[in-house]
Design a protein around this nucleic acid. Structure first.
Lengths: 233, 233
DNA sequence: GCATATTTGTCCGTATGTATA
DNA sequence: CTATACATACGGACAAATATG
């Protein structure tokens, strides 16, 4: 290496980190596309995803499709039944209970003991509340649902751990599948717009303990409501 | 279907659930094998895993190997560098900090608010302490490390969420890679044998709050010690 | 700095076993 | 029971990126 200028070291370092930026494989793009279809509800729980159909639709090989599907199975967006294929996950009561148990650990603890509880983090919580209230005022209930997810993601982000952020994203993706099984989502989002506002207020006031208690109660109520809805399914 | 006896319905139901038991794909077995090699320290952080070498060693095709490697990349056991291959992960200081932030949320909260805090769960915590003390008495420090992992897994299991259990397993797998970068693991395990005993005692006494506080302090100390060790690497 | 060898990313064809109409 | 469709797994191919002499 013939270092002629002082920037060469930095450039060499950049070169070694090249794979970190803007490098996306075909399998990743396929996974992104399928994940989005599921998130948007265009692929409903229980829907089958034959490999050949995906190959044809996306213009990629079966190997690539299989890699993407495996990724989504590990995210619990899809489930694989051996020798039968992959399907969009259909979360049952047990899954709802497990997800809420996890959320009742993560979310209150992030608010109570999070190590990234700063102005920027609190502002994100408030922004999600504002987003939700605006959507509710316009009767855009799907958007209220999205805002609600932003709210809970912002709560966990107060912990300051990328790993927990990712875990929360997976849990919320599973929740989206739960809501897709419901006939009318409005009843599940409407009561929580105001509660989010209350929680954000407590957080802004610095009363982390009160906010955490409120979140715990909120999550118990939401789980109860969802499980009741499963009875009429 | 000619149902001749009352058991036929139950048998048919079993048949439909067949894929749930003992069905393992080749890719899964490959992933298990590689994961174990890494966990046991026979494949050290930074080691390269060429696809062809794995094909030859395991007698499977490249497609299958690639599926297994992708799985392990999503578990953060391996890292993929685009067009360069996959390597055993080399956790750096930032990763250690992130993992400990996550653990300081998960573990104390599971003890404080876990919804599976029962006799069986507490017994598993105690069993891990006993296992660690026996191994320490015999100077089997690798086994002390394993027992330590069982201890922390048992703490999170008090939350009663399979999803959190899985998340904790991933975090502990990353911790194993951190320890594999250390010259002598004894100094990292020895101080915590006694502390685990104290924590287990508090849990058995039903003082969940005191146990949680002790765990938080423990995790701060362990992180600090590891980051200090990184300075001399 | 260049030419070469190696390895990955991706595609294709195919054989086999399994599930379902 | 057979036929069909599909998933699993293998092997070969090739371009592009990377590593090496």
């Amino acid at each position: 290496m013939t270092a002629v200028d002082p920037a060469s070291d930095a450039l060499a370092s950049l070169g070694r980190a090249r794979h970190l930026i803007a490098r996306t494989t075909t399998a990743e793009r396929v996974a992104d596309a399928v994940r989005e279809e599921v998130a948007e509800g265009r692929l409903l729980p229980g829907a089958r995803l034959p490999e050949q159909a995906l190959c044809a639709a996306l213009g990629v090989s079966r190997n690539t499709v299989r890699e993407a599907l495996s990724q989504l199975v590990s995210e619990r967006v899809l489930v694989r039944e051996h020798n039968r294929g992959v399907f969009v996950a259909e979360p049952d009561r047990d899954i709802v209970r497990d997800v809420y148990r996890a959320r009742r650990i993560l979310e209150p603890a992030a608010v109570r003991h999070g190590e990234a509880f700063d102005e920027a983090g609190v502002a994100l919580v408030r922004a999600a509340v504002t987003e939700g209230m605006a959507a509710a005022a316009d009767d855009r209930w799907d958007d209220v649902g999205s805002a609600n997810q932003h709210f809970h993601r912002a709560l966990v982000a107060l912990a300051g751990s990328a790993r927990l952020d990712q875990q929360m994203a997976l849990l919320l993706a599973e929740m989206r599948l739960v809501f897709h099984r419901m006939p009318d989502v409005r009843e599940f989002f409407e009561p929580y717009v105001a509660r989010n506002d209350v929680i954000a207020g407590l957080i802004e006031a610095g009363d982390r303990e009160a906010a955490a208690v409120e979140i715990t109660d909120y999550l118990h109520a939401a789980e109860k409501q969802l499980l009741a809805a499963y009875e009429q399914l």
